[in-house]
Design a binder for these strands. Sequence first.
RNA 1: GGGCGGUUAGCUCAGAUGGUUAGAGCGCUGCGUUGACAUCGCAGAGGUCACUGGUUCGAAUCCAGUAUCGCCCACCA
Length: 900
Amino acid sequence: MPSALPSTYNPVDVESRIYQMWEDGGFFNAQPDQGSDAYAVIMPPPNVTGQLHLGHGLEDALTDALVRWRRMRGFKALWLPGEDHAGIATQNVIERELASEGLSRHDVGREEFLKRTWEWVEQYRGRIYEQHRALGASADWSRDVFTLDPKIVRAVRTTFVNLYNDGLIYKGLRMINWCPRCETALSDLEVDYVEEEANLYHIRYPIVGEGGMPLPDSLTVATVRPETMLGDTGVAVHPEDPRYEEKIGKTVLLPIIGRELPIIADDSVKMDFGTGALKVTPAHDPIDWEIGQRHDLEAIVVIERDASMGDEAGPYVGLDRLEAREAIIRDLDEQGFLESVVPYTHTVGHCSRCKDSVEPLPSEQWWVGVNQEYEPGSSLASNASLAIRSGRINVVPERFSRTFLNWLDDIRDWCISRQLWWGHQIPVWYCECGEMTVAVQDPESCSFCGSAQLKQDEDVLDTWFSSALAPHADLGWPDDTADLRYFYPTTDMQMGYDIMFFWCARMVMLGLYNMKSERSDERDIPFKNILFHGLIRDANGEKMTKSRGNVVDPLISASTYGADAFRFALLTGSTLGQDMKYNEERLVAARNFANKLWNSARFILMNTKQETVSPPDINNRLGFAVEDRWILSRLAGLEDEVNSLLSAYQLGEAGRKIHDFLWSEFWDWYLEMCKVRLRADDMVPVDILTYVLKRALALLHPFMPFITEELWGYLQPSVSGTDSLLEPLIIEPYPVSDKTWIDLPVESAMNHVIDVNRSIRNIRVEKGLPAGIRPDVFIRSDTFRAELLATNEATCFISHVALSILDSDQELPSGDFAFARVASTEVALALPQVDISAERERLNSELMDAEAYLQKMEGQLSNTNFLEKAPENVIDSMRSRLSDAKERVQGLRNRIDLLE
RNA sequence: GGGCGGUUAGCUCAGAUGGUUAGAGCGCUGCGUUGACAUCGCAGAGGUCACUGGUUCGAAUCCAGUAUCGCCCACCA
């Protein structure tokens, strides 16, 4: 009912109703169908206790556009959603909640802690659904996966067991990043390095004589962490350092503690840093750990896991590490060991979750040996690298593949155990007999001695270990399911470039490993295309974080401007891979676009009246008006372009193209030109207006699903031959260009008609003619006379003139007229009176412009190199521009001469 | 120390495979309510595409370098 359409589009009225209709229709649900092509994309699972932010909004807009496009193109399009248990992040949330009650997790115990966490999960999971829905995400909710679902647990355990059996997972004592606040080990990726102002302390270590008597000689080391000296077990110098050559092999006395330390030679020591002598603390520094390994030095732990000084810390036991630092410096100074203190800037690792500074500690943890070969010549890392290099996985934008490969080149083993409670508990059971059982199913008894006294490893796995399995695990692996056979490898994967290493790289590594049985068919990759989008920053370009308080809630934006406007603004506001600033003005513009679309549909429906409409028939093409053929030609071109842009993942450009077509061609010109015909009860424009609008709605649907679906519903009943089923737009075939409509001559003719109208309007405004005046206008044209004649009435209507098209042998009238030239067409607009000098000035300025352009064209076309080497079509178009320019210049000169 | 990206109109940004007189939105100037839309219309102003050199008939686009801002990676204590 057209009359029911209000004059302003109100998104809140339609969005939830439309979404409900889609869901009730089961359109999001994709099932394997051998008769159709599969399209699959896995949703990056948001943290279950978080809420969606603008980044998720962008991801939904991006993915939903791709999914809807494919669905409309006839693919069985599966968008598989999920949520991530997000180990540390979630555990921190619950711990904070406990803390507000004055409790720690240890007070409530593991079982109760997990129970409370699950309660949160249930609560927040629902909220996340609602957020996605509000944005219009056409995900298959019936398949929603949580990373702690039993089927994922089985996939995780199976992966762990297989990797273990292949020797790719091992338990080992290594230097790790320890977060004292979160009380867990972290992987290298979870440590953020921040530059900090500190001091470099130069400390004198006396050299010990043969009989243990201190000699006057000494060796000075430099350190920013004097508290670690309590754990020193050596001093290292470069083997070729002339200053220390003779001291290698001697012994120094560790101040305060009095332990004797060997002076060793190691290549890794930089001669030009500090004093060239490095105190070696294997237990508290990664480099020192390696030196210690090479030289068989003892690792003495002096800093405990809670960041306090431990039993080996001598007089400083129990102090916090920073308190200890001050005390030690004071003591060293008093005892004359502190040589100097110089200000120094260095980087310190911080926990990416809680921001506390991490401690390097030796610790026994579980590791994935990413460089370990599991087949001759192939490791997890090398296979991942090969998949990218060979192009089997296509990276968009391409430049990110380099970042990806550089990272894989010197990747180190992945620490996967976390001393947390929330997560996948490691499937390893320890027996009193000292053996361990690694199994998918909880074992009844020890596989070595048969004892039933088993104790499961208390640690859980890094969250990313389970997310890394998403593409195959979500589809049913380790079972050989129909979904897995049909939808794997998934087609597209999408994420912010900030989680390229965390997630993308690990998905590739573990996907290739778990699906290696499919390698012969090249079906082992987790996805064929990986798209990296940029990050959304606030209006000042700052990263949005809770602590800065500049986070924008996508739902507030979407409810203020409409989900469609939100999506359209994000998609067209930037380019894939490029960061963007959040810009409210863009949302307003997109909202206005939606409103304009709404009103154009309202106009068309008002004119449809009770009639039915039929799509234009290509066989009658020559029976259509110039503007009809023009808009149909432009539409066909647009359809072609949009499909090819979408194929190349140029979503923003595709959206902008549709926007520009609608606004500056369909609405500004075609629709306006139709009005005069509609007043004369010509019904042909109704057919074409409806047809173009419908095709445009379909083109736009992946970008603005709600309003297009809503308008589609209004348009359907008026189209003839649709008394059968009214199919919703979501499953309408995506427009594919019928190129026979493309008519380049008519396009250039219409461009000319438009230019003539612009020129007329320009004169009107310049001469200050009131809107109510309809001046006489005379036009003489050789090249486009027929088209100008055909669009005569439209021009009269849209430019408010009384138009006469002269024959080419007729003279333009003289007297009180303003003149203009559009290429070869002359325009004379009658004025009450003409100010000759103003007119001369105006024409002269136009002439100068025309002459400059003419000169440029002449220069180009007199260049023999250009004529020899440029392609034919470029030369042709240049020639036609030259002849237009010549005519224009000549015409303007004539006009100026005629002025008295 | 490596690597990547940005630098285009006052502001925010597009310009995929080099070829119209370089575009959009917002802002600005002037006019305008002719029943789709003032969340609108019309007409304008506004850019030596950061800089220097090169390749090419032709460069915002490709190459080399410079400046500047930003990001990522890296064990200089």
